[in-house]
Design a protein around this nucleic acid. Structure first.
Length: 249
DNA sequence: TACATTTGACCCAG
DNA sequence: CTGGGTCAAATGTA
């Protein structure tokens, strides 16, 4: 049995190797066209490649890990058409422009609140408003698709090598799942301004849309996390995390 | 006690 | 005016 299993494993890896080679060739063709291929972290395009490759490799271990298998033809389709999980990634990229004109629940809450503001139980409320903060965000923004962990808690996004502290969660109009807001745990200590937003895709709850903002300035600290993000070190070990990024849209 | 998460309120850019 | 980003008190956890 062991002998047969080893044979199966060998066949699986040989097959995977051949497919990887083919995909690398396809990828090289594409790189001449797509500048985003050089982004250090997973762009939507790279994600399709990465996810497809991972799925293909891990699919041979289905009995162990129950990983969803993607047929090779579909993998090609993913690569050429940027479709994943039946969802057009290019459409996802611009989904923020949808759902205009819907009225949120907050309006009602606000109108109720504004009527009672300044007078709480007959006593005048404090007249010292919060200091106004400039919220204009010129920091670079980078969005990527991250598959949810195949095992364990799929409600939380996979580890990226940094420690994050959640500071908010919000229902987003037209989105099925709430968006979580995280900032670097070391913000207080080292003034690290890195932030990220995590939200499940409407059409595929197994994929998180993760948006990174700002850069980690806590690398140099002796107590700050020293390891690079796992995904980063696998995908492009020569580049530092978030060292390059696309301008915010 | 210290740190993380939750969640309603606050604030602001578009 | 509105939706989304952030704040901060309350609460949870180790």
């Amino acid at each position: 049995m062991l002998h047969l299993s080893i044979d199966d494993v060998m066949k699986a890896f040989i097959g995977a190797k051949e497919r990887l080679l083919l995909m690398m060739m396809l990828s090289q063709q594409d790189q001449t066209i797509t500048a985003s291929s050089y982004a250090p972290m997973l762009s939507t395009h790279d994600f399709a490649m990465q996810h497809a490759t991972t799925s293909m490799l891990t699919s041979y271990m289905n009995p162990l890990f129950q990983v969803q298998q993607l047929p090779f033809d579909h993998v090609r389709a993913l690569h050429e058409n940027k479709i994943i999980g039946g969802v057009d990634l290019q459409e996802i990229r611009y989904k923020g422009t949808l759902h205009i004109g819907e009225k949120g629940v907050r309006d009602v809450e606000r109108s109720v609140r504004s009527k009672s503001e300044g007078n709480v139980h007959g006593i005048e409320a404090s007249s010292s408003p919060r200091p106004r903060k400039c919220r204009r965000n010129d920091s670079v923004k980078k969005t990527m698709m991250v598959p949810a962990p195949e095992v364990g808690n799929t409600e939380i996004p996979p580890e990226d090598g940094f420690t994050w502290r959640k500071y908010g969660q919000k229902e987003i109009l037209g989105s099925k799942y709430p968006r979580g807001y995280y900032r670097c745990t070391h913000q207080k200590l080292y003034g690290c301004q890195a932030k990220k937003q995590v939200q499940k895709l409407d059409h595929n709850s197994n994929i998180f849309e993760v948006t990174y903002r700002g850069e980690h300035t806590c690398h140099m600290s002796s107590t700050a996390p020293s390891s690079f993000p796992l995904t980063q070190s696998i995908i492009s070990p020569h580049l530092s995390p978030l060292s390059t990024s696309v301008p915010s849209t």
